[in-house]
Write a protein that binds this DNA or RNA. Structure first.
Lengths: 225, 225
DNA sequence: GTAGAGCGATGAAGATCCTGATCGTCGAAG
DNA sequence: CTTCGACGATCAGGATCTTCATCGCTCTAC
Protein backbone atom coordinates (compact mmCIF):
# COMPACT_ATOMS: atom_id res chain seq x y z
CA UNK A 1 0.00 0.00 0.00
CA UNK A 2 1.44 3.29 -1.10
CA UNK A 3 0.50 6.50 0.67
CA UNK A 4 1.28 10.11 -0.14
CA UNK A 5 1.45 12.64 2.68
CA UNK A 6 1.19 16.32 1.85
CA UNK A 7 2.22 18.29 4.90
CA UNK A 8 4.38 21.35 5.23
CA UNK A 9 5.18 21.26 8.91
CA UNK A 10 8.35 19.16 9.13
CA UNK A 11 7.72 17.70 12.57
CA UNK A 12 4.26 16.45 11.80
CA UNK A 13 5.35 15.19 8.40
CA UNK A 14 8.28 13.26 9.80
CA UNK A 15 6.17 11.82 12.53
CA UNK A 16 3.50 10.64 10.12
CA UNK A 17 6.03 9.14 7.78
CA UNK A 18 7.77 7.25 10.49
CA UNK A 19 4.60 5.94 12.05
CA UNK A 20 3.09 4.82 8.78
CA UNK A 21 6.30 3.25 7.59
CA UNK A 22 6.50 1.26 10.78
CA UNK A 23 2.90 0.21 10.21
CA UNK A 24 3.98 -1.31 6.92
CA UNK A 25 2.98 1.30 4.37
CA UNK A 26 5.17 2.74 1.65
CA UNK A 27 5.18 6.46 2.25
CA UNK A 28 6.13 9.53 0.25
CA UNK A 29 6.13 13.01 1.66
CA UNK A 30 5.46 16.25 -0.21
CA UNK A 31 6.26 19.57 1.45
CA UNK A 32 3.87 21.84 -0.41
CA UNK A 33 0.82 21.84 -2.64
CA UNK A 34 2.65 21.91 -5.96
CA UNK A 35 4.82 18.92 -5.26
CA UNK A 36 1.78 17.28 -3.74
CA UNK A 37 -0.35 17.63 -6.81
CA UNK A 38 2.46 16.58 -9.08
CA UNK A 39 3.16 13.42 -7.14
CA UNK A 40 -0.48 12.61 -6.47
CA UNK A 41 -1.56 12.53 -10.10
CA UNK A 42 1.49 10.73 -11.34
CA UNK A 43 2.55 8.54 -8.48
CA UNK A 44 0.16 5.63 -8.41
CA UNK A 45 -0.83 6.01 -4.76
CA UNK A 46 -3.53 4.13 -2.94
CA UNK A 47 -4.34 6.99 -0.64
CA UNK A 48 -3.45 10.62 0.04
CA UNK A 49 -3.23 12.31 3.43
CA UNK A 50 -3.66 16.03 3.04
CA UNK A 51 -3.07 18.90 5.41
CA UNK A 52 -5.58 21.66 4.82
CA UNK A 53 -3.18 24.51 5.50
CA UNK A 54 -0.45 24.43 2.94
CA UNK A 55 1.89 26.95 1.36
CA UNK A 56 1.48 27.28 -2.39
CA UNK A 57 -1.66 25.42 -3.32
CA UNK A 58 -3.97 24.97 -0.37
CA UNK A 59 -5.74 21.76 0.49
CA UNK A 60 -8.86 22.36 -1.55
CA UNK A 61 -7.14 23.44 -4.69
CA UNK A 62 -4.99 20.40 -4.40
CA UNK A 63 -8.01 18.23 -3.81
CA UNK A 64 -9.88 19.44 -6.85
CA UNK A 65 -6.73 19.00 -8.90
CA UNK A 66 -6.53 15.41 -7.77
CA UNK A 67 -10.22 14.77 -8.36
CA UNK A 68 -9.93 16.00 -11.93
CA UNK A 69 -7.40 13.34 -12.72
CA UNK A 70 -8.51 10.57 -10.43
CA UNK A 71 -12.02 10.72 -9.00
CA UNK A 72 -11.66 7.58 -6.93
CA UNK A 73 -8.37 8.08 -5.12
CA UNK A 74 -9.14 8.08 -1.39
CA UNK A 75 -8.19 11.35 0.29
CA UNK A 76 -8.04 11.94 4.03
CA UNK A 77 -8.03 15.53 5.27
CA UNK A 78 -6.13 16.74 8.29
CA UNK A 79 -7.64 19.84 9.82
CA UNK A 80 -6.81 21.83 12.93
CA UNK A 81 -9.36 22.32 15.65
CA UNK A 82 -10.17 25.88 14.73
CA UNK A 83 -10.74 24.99 11.11
CA UNK A 84 -13.33 22.40 11.92
CA UNK A 85 -15.98 24.02 9.81
CA UNK A 86 -13.70 23.62 6.86
CA UNK A 87 -14.18 19.91 7.00
CA UNK A 88 -17.61 20.32 5.51
CA UNK A 89 -16.05 22.13 2.60
CA UNK A 90 -13.52 19.35 2.27
CA UNK A 91 -16.09 16.62 2.28
CA UNK A 92 -18.20 18.43 -0.28
CA UNK A 93 -15.21 18.76 -2.51
CA UNK A 94 -14.78 15.04 -2.42
CA UNK A 95 -12.56 14.20 0.51
CA UNK A 96 -13.33 10.77 1.91
CA UNK A 97 -12.65 11.41 5.55
CA UNK A 98 -11.14 13.95 7.87
CA UNK A 99 -9.29 13.93 11.15
CA UNK A 100 -8.87 16.76 13.60
CA UNK A 101 -5.43 17.51 14.96
CA UNK A 102 -4.33 16.58 17.50
CA UNK A 103 -5.38 12.98 17.19
CA UNK A 104 -4.29 9.58 18.40
CA UNK A 105 -2.18 7.63 15.97
CA UNK A 106 -4.31 4.54 16.47
CA UNK A 107 -7.25 6.56 15.27
CA UNK A 108 -5.45 7.47 12.08
CA UNK A 109 -4.54 3.86 11.43
CA UNK A 110 -8.14 2.78 11.93
CA UNK A 111 -9.41 5.31 9.44
CA UNK A 112 -6.75 4.35 6.94
CA UNK A 113 -7.70 0.74 7.14
CA UNK A 114 -11.34 1.57 6.52
CA UNK A 115 -10.53 3.74 3.54
CA UNK A 116 -8.12 1.28 2.03
CA UNK A 117 -10.32 -1.71 2.63
CA UNK A 118 -13.17 -0.03 0.85
CA UNK A 119 -10.76 0.23 -2.00
CA UNK A 120 -11.28 1.73 -5.37
CA UNK A 121 -13.49 -0.87 -6.92
CA UNK A 122 -14.78 -3.17 -4.21
CA UNK A 123 -17.24 -0.69 -2.73
CA UNK A 124 -17.86 -2.26 0.61
CA UNK A 125 -20.72 -0.54 2.41
CA UNK A 126 -19.70 2.60 4.22
CA UNK A 127 -23.17 3.55 5.37
CA UNK A 128 -25.30 1.38 7.63
CA UNK A 129 -29.02 1.96 7.46
CA UNK A 130 -31.99 0.80 9.53
CA UNK A 131 -35.33 2.43 8.79
CA UNK A 132 -34.57 6.13 8.54
CA UNK A 133 -31.48 5.89 10.74
CA UNK A 134 -28.14 6.16 8.93
CA UNK A 135 -24.64 5.74 10.22
CA UNK A 136 -21.81 6.89 7.96
CA UNK A 137 -18.76 4.91 8.96
CA UNK A 138 -16.28 7.08 7.12
CA UNK A 139 -17.51 10.43 8.21
CA UNK A 140 -18.54 9.15 11.63
CA UNK A 141 -21.86 10.83 11.17
CA UNK A 142 -25.34 9.81 12.18
CA UNK A 143 -28.57 10.91 10.54
CA UNK A 144 -32.11 10.15 11.58
CA UNK A 145 -34.80 11.13 9.13
CA UNK A 146 -32.22 13.26 7.35
CA UNK A 147 -31.35 15.24 10.48
CA UNK A 148 -27.83 15.23 11.82
CA UNK A 149 -27.44 13.73 15.30
CA UNK A 150 -24.39 14.52 17.41
CA UNK A 151 -23.06 11.59 19.39
CA UNK A 152 -20.27 11.30 21.90
CA UNK A 153 -17.52 8.74 21.47
CA UNK A 154 -19.16 6.06 23.59
CA UNK A 155 -22.55 6.67 22.10
CA UNK A 156 -21.12 6.31 18.64
CA UNK A 157 -19.31 3.10 19.51
CA UNK A 158 -22.47 1.71 21.01
CA UNK A 159 -24.60 2.63 18.02
CA UNK A 160 -22.05 1.22 15.61
CA UNK A 161 -22.15 -2.06 17.48
CA UNK A 162 -25.93 -2.13 17.38
CA UNK A 163 -26.11 -1.35 13.70
CA UNK A 164 -23.42 -3.76 12.64
CA UNK A 165 -25.36 -6.47 14.40
CA UNK A 166 -28.82 -5.29 13.59
CA UNK A 167 -31.53 -7.69 14.69
CA UNK A 168 -29.26 -9.60 17.06
CA UNK A 169 -30.02 -9.51 20.75
CA UNK A 170 -26.84 -8.32 22.42
CA UNK A 171 -26.33 -9.31 26.04
CA UNK A 172 -24.99 -6.65 28.37
CA UNK A 173 -21.78 -8.54 28.88
CA UNK A 174 -21.10 -8.50 25.15
CA UNK A 175 -21.81 -4.81 24.95
CA UNK A 176 -19.63 -4.11 27.96
CA UNK A 177 -16.76 -6.05 26.50
CA UNK A 178 -16.86 -4.48 23.07
CA UNK A 179 -17.58 -0.89 23.98
CA UNK A 180 -15.79 -0.68 27.30
CA UNK A 181 -13.33 -3.54 27.29
CA UNK A 182 -14.88 -4.55 30.57
CA UNK A 183 -15.52 -8.16 31.00
CA UNK A 184 -16.99 -8.66 34.36
CA UNK A 185 -20.62 -8.41 35.14
CA UNK A 186 -20.36 -7.03 38.60
CA UNK A 187 -22.58 -4.39 40.03
CA UNK A 188 -22.39 -1.72 37.39
CA UNK A 189 -25.14 -0.49 35.15
CA UNK A 190 -23.06 1.56 32.74
CA UNK A 191 -24.57 -0.22 29.80
CA UNK A 192 -28.12 0.59 30.84
CA UNK A 193 -27.29 4.22 31.33
CA UNK A 194 -25.44 4.45 28.04
CA UNK A 195 -28.31 2.82 26.19
CA UNK A 196 -30.66 5.29 27.75
CA UNK A 197 -28.56 8.22 26.62
CA UNK A 198 -28.35 6.81 23.14
CA UNK A 199 -32.09 6.27 23.04
CA UNK A 200 -32.72 9.85 24.03
CA UNK A 201 -30.76 11.05 21.05
CA UNK A 202 -31.63 8.43 18.48
CA UNK A 203 -35.14 7.23 19.30
CA UNK A 204 -36.80 9.96 21.34
CA UNK A 205 -39.38 11.70 19.21
CA UNK A 206 -38.97 9.37 16.26
CA UNK A 207 -40.98 6.47 14.95
CA UNK A 208 -40.42 3.62 14.94
CA UNK A 209 -38.44 3.03 18.12
CA UNK A 210 -35.40 1.08 17.03
CA UNK A 211 -33.57 0.21 20.23
CA UNK A 212 -35.57 -2.40 22.07
CA UNK A 213 -35.11 -4.05 25.43
CA UNK A 214 -35.30 -7.82 25.62
CA UNK A 215 -35.98 -8.65 29.20
CA UNK A 216 -33.45 -10.97 30.73
CA UNK A 217 -31.35 -11.00 27.57
CA UNK A 218 -30.14 -7.60 26.55
CA UNK A 219 -30.87 -5.09 23.80
CA UNK A 220 -31.55 -5.21 20.05
CA UNK A 221 -31.62 -2.58 17.42
CA UNK A 222 -34.10 -3.36 14.70
CA UNK A 223 -37.19 -2.25 12.91
CA UNK A 224 -40.22 -3.73 14.67
CA UNK A 225 -42.53 -5.66 12.33
CA UNK B 1 4.45 -19.09 32.46
CA UNK B 2 1.97 -21.04 34.52
CA UNK B 3 -0.94 -19.30 36.20
CA UNK B 4 -3.52 -20.58 38.64
CA UNK B 5 -6.94 -18.93 38.74
CA UNK B 6 -9.13 -19.45 41.78
CA UNK B 7 -12.61 -18.27 40.92
CA UNK B 8 -15.96 -19.78 41.69
CA UNK B 9 -18.14 -17.93 39.25
CA UNK B 10 -18.05 -20.04 36.10
CA UNK B 11 -18.48 -17.22 33.60
CA UNK B 12 -15.68 -15.11 34.97
CA UNK B 13 -13.45 -18.13 35.36
CA UNK B 14 -14.00 -19.29 31.80
CA UNK B 15 -13.44 -15.81 30.49
CA UNK B 16 -10.18 -15.41 32.38
CA UNK B 17 -8.92 -18.78 31.31
CA UNK B 18 -9.66 -18.17 27.68
CA UNK B 19 -8.16 -14.70 27.63
CA UNK B 20 -4.99 -15.72 29.41
CA UNK B 21 -4.55 -18.82 27.34
CA UNK B 22 -4.80 -16.74 24.20
CA UNK B 23 -2.21 -14.43 25.68
CA UNK B 24 0.15 -17.37 25.85
CA UNK B 25 -0.03 -18.43 29.46
CA UNK B 26 -0.63 -21.92 30.74
CA UNK B 27 -3.71 -21.72 32.88
CA UNK B 28 -5.36 -23.90 35.52
CA UNK B 29 -8.67 -23.10 37.09
CA UNK B 30 -9.82 -24.00 40.60
CA UNK B 31 -13.47 -23.65 41.54
CA UNK B 32 -13.17 -23.21 45.28
CA UNK B 33 -10.73 -22.44 48.03
CA UNK B 34 -9.87 -26.01 48.93
CA UNK B 35 -8.92 -27.03 45.41
CA UNK B 36 -7.20 -23.70 45.08
CA UNK B 37 -4.96 -24.18 48.06
CA UNK B 38 -4.21 -27.73 47.12
CA UNK B 39 -3.15 -26.80 43.61
CA UNK B 40 -1.35 -23.63 44.60
CA UNK B 41 1.02 -25.25 47.06
CA UNK B 42 1.72 -28.27 44.92
CA UNK B 43 1.43 -27.04 41.40
CA UNK B 44 4.56 -25.10 40.64
CA UNK B 45 2.82 -21.94 39.46
CA UNK B 46 4.42 -18.63 38.63
CA UNK B 47 1.44 -16.63 39.74
CA UNK B 48 -1.99 -16.99 41.35
CA UNK B 49 -5.09 -14.94 40.56
CA UNK B 50 -7.46 -15.05 43.47
CA UNK B 51 -11.07 -14.01 43.81
CA UNK B 52 -11.73 -12.67 47.29
CA UNK B 53 -15.22 -14.12 47.57
CA UNK B 54 -15.02 -17.86 47.48
CA UNK B 55 -17.06 -20.75 48.78
CA UNK B 56 -15.22 -22.97 51.23
CA UNK B 57 -12.02 -21.20 52.11
CA UNK B 58 -12.22 -17.49 51.42
CA UNK B 59 -9.52 -15.47 49.74
CA UNK B 60 -7.60 -14.57 52.88
CA UNK B 61 -7.51 -18.00 54.36
CA UNK B 62 -6.29 -19.25 51.05
CA UNK B 63 -3.71 -16.51 50.85
CA UNK B 64 -2.26 -17.21 54.25
CA UNK B 65 -2.19 -20.90 53.42
CA UNK B 66 -0.19 -20.13 50.32
CA UNK B 67 2.15 -17.77 52.14
CA UNK B 68 2.96 -20.41 54.71
CA UNK B 69 4.28 -22.70 52.03
CA UNK B 70 5.63 -20.22 49.53
CA UNK B 71 6.26 -16.68 50.71
CA UNK B 72 7.35 -15.43 47.30
CA UNK B 73 4.66 -16.69 44.98
CA UNK B 74 3.05 -13.61 43.38
CA UNK B 75 -0.65 -13.34 44.18
CA UNK B 76 -3.08 -10.97 42.50
CA UNK B 77 -6.39 -10.30 44.24
CA UNK B 78 -9.67 -9.75 42.44
CA UNK B 79 -12.10 -7.73 44.49
CA UNK B 80 -15.55 -6.35 43.73
CA UNK B 81 -16.23 -2.66 43.99
CA UNK B 82 -18.06 -2.83 47.27
CA UNK B 83 -15.27 -4.81 48.87
CA UNK B 84 -12.67 -2.23 48.05
CA UNK B 85 -11.66 -1.72 51.64
CA UNK B 86 -10.81 -5.37 51.77
CA UNK B 87 -7.93 -4.77 49.45
CA UNK B 88 -6.00 -3.22 52.30
CA UNK B 89 -6.52 -6.39 54.25
CA UNK B 90 -5.36 -8.39 51.25
CA UNK B 91 -2.23 -6.36 50.77
CA UNK B 92 -1.39 -6.60 54.43
CA UNK B 93 -1.74 -10.33 54.29
CA UNK B 94 0.81 -10.42 51.53
CA UNK B 95 -1.03 -10.08 48.24
CA UNK B 96 1.12 -8.41 45.61
CA UNK B 97 -1.52 -6.51 43.74
CA UNK B 98 -5.25 -6.17 43.43
CA UNK B 99 -7.71 -5.36 40.69
CA UNK B 100 -11.27 -4.16 41.08
CA UNK B 101 -13.99 -5.85 39.08
CA UNK B 102 -15.08 -4.95 36.52
CA UNK B 103 -11.80 -4.20 34.82
CA UNK B 104 -10.36 -4.06 31.33
CA UNK B 105 -8.55 -7.16 30.23
CA UNK B 106 -5.63 -5.09 28.99
CA UNK B 107 -5.24 -3.82 32.50
CA UNK B 108 -5.03 -7.32 33.89
CA UNK B 109 -2.39 -8.28 31.35
CA UNK B 110 -0.33 -5.22 32.21
CA UNK B 111 -0.37 -6.07 35.90
CA UNK B 112 0.51 -9.67 35.22
CA UNK B 113 3.48 -8.68 33.17
CA UNK B 114 4.73 -6.44 35.95
CA UNK B 115 4.32 -9.11 38.57
CA UNK B 116 5.91 -11.81 36.48
CA UNK B 117 8.76 -9.65 35.30
CA UNK B 118 9.65 -8.84 38.86
CA UNK B 119 9.97 -12.55 39.25
CA UNK B 120 10.78 -14.49 42.30
CA UNK B 121 14.45 -13.79 42.55
CA UNK B 122 15.36 -10.98 40.21
CA UNK B 123 13.87 -8.25 42.38
CA UNK B 124 13.55 -5.51 39.85
CA UNK B 125 12.53 -2.26 41.51
CA UNK B 126 8.83 -1.98 42.14
CA UNK B 127 8.98 1.31 43.98
CA UNK B 128 10.31 4.50 42.42
CA UNK B 129 11.53 7.10 44.84
CA UNK B 130 12.57 10.74 44.54
CA UNK B 131 13.16 12.64 47.76
CA UNK B 132 10.21 11.73 49.97
CA UNK B 133 7.94 10.92 47.05
CA UNK B 134 7.29 7.25 46.42
CA UNK B 135 5.45 5.53 43.64
CA UNK B 136 4.58 1.88 44.14
CA UNK B 137 4.22 0.36 40.69
CA UNK B 138 2.54 -2.80 41.87
CA UNK B 139 -0.01 -1.30 44.14
CA UNK B 140 -0.41 1.79 42.02
CA UNK B 141 0.00 3.85 45.10
CA UNK B 142 1.70 7.15 45.70
CA UNK B 143 3.10 8.39 48.97
CA UNK B 144 4.61 11.75 49.78
CA UNK B 145 6.29 12.06 53.12
CA UNK B 146 4.56 8.84 54.12
CA UNK B 147 1.09 10.20 53.38
CA UNK B 148 -1.09 8.48 50.83
CA UNK B 149 -1.95 10.59 47.78
CA UNK B 150 -4.94 9.67 45.61
CA UNK B 151 -4.36 10.15 41.91
CA UNK B 152 -6.64 9.76 38.93
CA UNK B 153 -5.67 7.58 35.99
CA UNK B 154 -4.12 10.37 33.95
CA UNK B 155 -2.34 11.85 36.91
CA UNK B 156 -0.86 8.49 37.73
CA UNK B 157 0.29 7.90 34.17
CA UNK B 158 1.88 11.32 34.10
CA UNK B 159 3.66 10.85 37.41
CA UNK B 160 4.89 7.42 36.41
CA UNK B 161 6.37 8.91 33.27
CA UNK B 162 8.08 11.65 35.25
CA UNK B 163 9.49 9.27 37.82
CA UNK B 164 10.69 6.70 35.35
CA UNK B 165 12.62 9.45 33.63
CA UNK B 166 13.61 11.41 36.64
CA UNK B 167 15.96 14.26 35.87
CA UNK B 168 15.19 14.28 32.16
CA UNK B 169 13.52 17.30 30.68
CA UNK B 170 10.43 16.04 28.94
CA UNK B 171 9.06 18.13 26.11
CA UNK B 172 5.31 18.56 25.96
CA UNK B 173 5.09 16.64 22.74
CA UNK B 174 6.70 13.63 24.36
CA UNK B 175 4.37 13.83 27.31
CA UNK B 176 1.36 14.20 25.06
CA UNK B 177 2.33 11.21 23.03
CA UNK B 178 3.01 8.90 25.92
CA UNK B 179 0.18 9.83 28.23
CA UNK B 180 -2.48 10.71 25.67
CA UNK B 181 -1.36 9.01 22.49
CA UNK B 182 -1.68 12.41 20.87
CA UNK B 183 1.03 13.35 18.54
CA UNK B 184 0.28 16.74 17.17
CA UNK B 185 1.26 19.95 18.75
CA UNK B 186 -1.72 22.00 17.87
CA UNK B 187 -3.43 24.48 20.07
CA UNK B 188 -4.16 22.43 23.13
CA UNK B 189 -2.77 22.92 26.61
CA UNK B 190 -3.89 19.64 28.13
CA UNK B 191 -0.38 18.87 29.27
CA UNK B 192 -0.04 22.14 31.16
CA UNK B 193 -3.36 21.65 32.87
CA UNK B 194 -2.57 18.07 33.79
CA UNK B 195 0.81 19.05 35.18
CA UNK B 196 -0.87 21.68 37.25
CA UNK B 197 -3.33 19.20 38.70
CA UNK B 198 -0.53 16.81 39.47
CA UNK B 199 1.48 19.56 41.11
CA UNK B 200 -1.41 20.50 43.32
CA UNK B 201 -1.56 16.98 44.67
CA UNK B 202 2.09 16.07 44.74
CA UNK B 203 4.02 19.27 45.33
CA UNK B 204 1.62 21.72 46.97
CA UNK B 205 2.53 22.12 50.59
CA UNK B 206 5.64 19.97 50.39
CA UNK B 207 9.32 20.72 50.18
CA UNK B 208 11.20 20.46 47.98
CA UNK B 209 9.16 21.15 44.88
CA UNK B 210 9.88 18.27 42.55
CA UNK B 211 8.08 19.11 39.33
CA UNK B 212 9.91 21.93 37.67
CA UNK B 213 9.21 23.91 34.54
CA UNK B 214 12.00 24.38 32.03
CA UNK B 215 11.06 27.32 29.96
CA UNK B 216 10.87 26.63 26.27
CA UNK B 217 11.66 22.95 26.80
CA UNK B 218 9.15 21.17 28.98
CA UNK B 219 9.03 19.75 32.48
CA UNK B 220 11.37 17.75 34.72
CA UNK B 221 10.81 15.90 37.91
CA UNK B 222 13.86 15.97 40.12
CA UNK B 223 15.25 17.00 43.42
CA UNK B 224 16.72 20.49 43.10
CA UNK B 225 20.37 20.70 44.24
C1' DG C 1 -55.73 -12.55 41.79
C1' DT C 2 -52.15 -11.04 44.72
C1' DA C 3 -47.64 -10.56 46.76
C1' DG C 4 -42.96 -10.49 46.18
C1' DA C 5 -38.67 -10.64 43.79
C1' DG C 6 -35.99 -9.45 40.08
C1' DC C 7 -35.00 -6.57 36.39
C1' DG C 8 -34.75 -2.44 33.95
C1' DA C 9 -35.56 2.70 33.71
C1' DT C 10 -34.71 6.93 35.37
C1' DG C 11 -32.83 10.99 37.60
C1' DA C 12 -29.36 13.26 40.05
C1' DA C 13 -24.93 13.91 41.73
C1' DG C 14 -20.07 13.52 41.35
C1' DA C 15 -15.60 12.68 39.20
C1' DT C 16 -12.64 13.38 35.61
C1' DC C 17 -10.98 15.60 31.88
C1' DC C 18 -10.73 19.13 28.23
C1' DT C 19 -11.30 23.80 26.38
C1' DG C 20 -10.73 28.60 26.16
C1' DA C 21 -9.76 32.94 28.21
C1' DT C 22 -7.10 35.66 31.00
C1' DC C 23 -3.33 36.80 33.83
C1' DG C 24 1.43 36.85 35.15
C1' DT C 25 6.23 36.35 34.34
C1' DC C 26 10.50 35.80 32.00
C1' DG C 27 13.74 37.30 28.67
C1' DA C 28 15.34 39.79 24.79
C1' DA C 29 15.62 44.08 22.18
C1' DG C 30 15.95 48.74 22.11
C1' DC D 1 16.07 50.35 32.48
C1' DT D 2 11.93 49.86 30.04
C1' DT D 3 8.92 47.75 26.86
C1' DC D 4 7.06 44.15 24.39
C1' DG D 5 6.21 39.54 23.07
C1' DA D 6 6.20 34.78 24.03
C1' DC D 7 5.43 31.31 27.11
C1' DG D 8 3.44 29.26 31.00
C1' DA D 9 0.03 29.31 34.99
C1' DT D 10 -4.33 29.52 36.47
C1' DC D 11 -9.26 29.53 36.62
C1' DA D 12 -13.88 28.83 35.27
C1' DG D 13 -17.01 26.47 32.53
C1' DG D 14 -18.62 22.60 30.23
C1' DA D 15 -18.80 17.93 28.27
C1' DT D 16 -18.69 13.28 29.14
C1' DC D 17 -19.07 9.39 31.70
C1' DT D 18 -19.88 6.69 35.90
C1' DT D 19 -22.05 5.70 40.16
C1' DC D 20 -25.79 5.38 43.19
C1' DA D 21 -30.42 5.40 44.79
C1' DT D 22 -35.01 4.99 43.73
C1' DC D 23 -39.01 3.94 41.13
C1' DG D 24 -41.96 1.10 38.33
C1' DC D 25 -42.97 -2.81 35.68
C1' DT D 26 -43.11 -7.79 34.67
C1' DC D 27 -43.11 -12.35 35.80
C1' DT D 28 -43.71 -16.05 38.83
C1' DA D 29 -45.24 -18.56 42.82
C1' DC D 30 -48.76 -19.31 45.76
Amino acid sequence: MKILIVEDEPKTGAYLRQGLTEAGYVVDLARDGFDGLHLAVGGDYDLVILDVMLPGLDGWQLLSGIRRKDPDLPVLFLTARDQVDDRVKGLELGADDYLIKPFAFAELLARLRTLLRRGRATNEPTVLRVADLELDLLRRRVLRGGRRIELTAKEYALLELFMRRRGEVLPRSLIASSVWDMNFDSDTNVVDVAVRRLRLKVDEGFEPRLIQTVRGMGYVLDEPE
